[in-house]
């Protein structure tokens, strides 16, 4: 029972959804699944959020290293929950729009979460630079190709690329760096992307079948 029922559910639901693509009256089943999923995800959050609370409360209670930061996390979490669930500061009250400019929820989002998110994202600029320095070295044939392609594209995306090769006569304009960059994007890059996409599609078919047939079942905590 503990093992068979989940496997049956997987098989049954999966097959049903595959079939629904080919049966016009069943076309809405896929949509219904996304509604189910959204509702399940809320319930699951009680587990996740509960876990977050438990970990940080334990850390504070046992005064483990860095427990002070756990207090910050807990306060931030609870304040945001209260602001959002009770729609604090919202002129329309509990029935008002959650994201009205005056509501605490929106103020916290705008002034704390949003700058934090943008800055964290902006760190990428630095990491892109250090990764380029480290990874784009002509260590072997593959790495050299990677390096050359990247360099041409980089050059092609700056006005310097244009200036550098603007002397090339129009009949050979493909060799001008910006055009070459576009050609790489729509030629070899397209080919590589396609091969990867076709592979991914087939990989998904094969993995999905393993799951539906119950051959792959580690995700259910069933490891035999």
């Amino acid at each position: 029972m503990k093992r068979e029922v989940p496997l049956f559910i997987t098989f049954f639901v999966g097959t049903l959804l595959i079939a629904s693509v080919f049966i016009p009256p069943a076309e809405s089943w896929g949509e219904n699944f996304s509604v189910y999923f959204d509702i399940i995800a809320v319930f699951a959050f009680f587990l996740g959020g509960g876990n977050l609370l438990r970990i940080h409360l334990q850390k504070v209670a046992s005064k483990r290293p860095d427990w002070g930061y756990s207090i910050v996390t807990l306060v931030a979490f609870l304040v945001m929950l209260a602001a959002g669930l009770f729609k604090l500061g919202n002129p329309g009250g509990i029935s008002g729009n959650l994201t009205t400019a005056q509501s605490w929820f929106q103020i916290l989002f705008q002034n704390i979460m949003s700058p934090l998110g943008s800055t964290m994202y902006a760190l990428l600029a630095f990491f892109v630079a250090s990764a380029s320095y480290r990874a784009f070295r002509a260590k072997n044939r593959d790495a050299t190709i990677l390096l050359v392609a990247a360099f041409i594209i980089l050059l092609g995306r700056t006005p310097f690329g244009t200036m550098l090769t603007s002397w090339i006569p129009p009949q050979y304009d493909l060799l001008q760096v910006p055009n070459l960059a576009i050609w790489i994007m729509s030629g070899p890059n397209l080919a590589g992307q396609r091969a990867i996409m076709i592979g991914i599609g087939l990989g998904i078919v094969s993995m999905s079948l393993r799951i539906l047939l119950g051959i792959e079942r580690t995700y259910l905590g069933d490891d035999r």
Partner: peptide, 17 residues
Amino acid sequence: PQTLAHMVIMMFIIIGN
């Protein structure tokens, strides 16, 4: 800024090599 940053990264690729 975009262009200048690109130039700097290309410099670093050259230096790295």
